[in-house]
């Protein structure tokens, strides 16, 4: 074994935990060859010493470095679980809403179902929300957003334009998802009705096969800091979080994957509740409910 072959074996062993010790044990033909070369080669023995020291430093240091994808995972978790702030990205026009965020959709809240009797017995509204009606509602929200922004003057106009681009991008996503979900053979619509406020209205379309779900609501106003509206689904008395409602124009919405609606024949009950973020629970009194 020559110098280069020896150094290759030493380097490859150095990056594996305990690799150099195993190689130095000399209990394989390869290890014996390396040991034989080292016994008569001062420079390769010195190289072994340098490798031991440097590899130990590198290993210790890299173990203390966060993985590269931790940043994106942290930001995704904050988008899914963080309080609602008027998100502004460095790149205007790139939507950052957690639409379709499976992490958000899969977060389970095991709070027991606690819908009000009034809500549970409330008849579904007779008004039919067709897919086109849903899309028209979303389009109206886009128009409202554009009109509102066109009236803005002053130094915050850039921020407002960026926010408008985000809102429009998100609403476009909602529209596209609505059309896609409605085209599924197993898609279903659910009318959401205000529990105590008849001015609240909403609709939900979903596909148990793809688990995609879109919910939109009108009449809700953006909650105070420290609160957020959360959409949920209840199956067999078990409530699971769907996602945080976002606001665009006068529309509140959420769209994305909802594993909780997959593969069950049990009746599903959907709702939206105002959640206090200091003690988040889905037990809160719903403001909108509906069943399929």
């Amino acid at each position: 074994m020559d110098h280069e072959e020896t150094r290759e074996q030493l380097e490859l062993a150095a990056v594996e935990p305990g690799g150099l010790d195993r190689l130095m044990a000399g209990d394989t033909p390869l290890a014996q060859s390396v040991a034989g070369h080292l016994a008569g080669c001062e420079s390769c023995t010195a190289e072994l010493g340098r490798l031991r020291r440097s590899s130990a430093i590198i290993r210790a240091d890299l173990h203390e470095m966060p993985p590269a994808d931790l940043k994106s995972r942290t930001l995704a978790a904050i988008r899914a679980e963080g309080v609602q702030r008027p998100l502004v990205t460095a790149t205007p026009g790139v939507a950052v809403m957690p639409l379709g965020d499976r992490a958000a959709a899969s977060v389970t809240d095991t709070a027991a179902a606690n819908g009000s009797p009034t809500a549970a017995t409330r008849p579904r509204r007779t008004r039919t929300w067709s897919t086109l009606a849903l899309v028209a509602t979303i389009a109206a929200a886009v128009v409202l957003s554009v009109v509102t922004t066109s009236l803005i003057v002053g130094r915050r106009v850039d921020d407002q334009l960026a926010q408008q681009a985000l809102t429009i991008g998100a609403l476009e996503h909602v529209t596209t998802t609505t059309m896609t979900v409605a085209a599924q053979p197993d898609s279903d619509h659910v009318q959401l009705a205000g529990v105590t406020d008849p001015a609240l209205d909403g609709s939900l379309v979903y596909s148990p096969g793809t688990t995609d779900l879109v919910v939109v609501a009108t009449g809700l106003t953006e909650p105070a800091p420290g609160y957020e509206y959360r959409c949920w689904v209840e199956v067999n008395g078990q409530r699971e979080r769907i996602g945080r409602m976002f606001f665009g124009g006068d529309l509140a919405y959420w769209a994305g994957a909802t594993p909780a609606i997959a593969g069950t024949s049990s009746p599903r009950r959907f709702g939206v509740s105002l959640v206090d973020l200091s003690a988040p629970t889905l037990d809160a009194q719903p403001v909108l409910v509906g069943s399929d």
Partner: peptide, 15 residues
């Protein structure tokens, strides 16, 4: 105030 870019900056500095 809602800037995700600011959040990223703080992450880069401290994480």
């Amino acid at each position: 105030a809602g800037s995700e870019a600011a959040l990223e900056k703080l992450y880069d500095r401290h994480a």
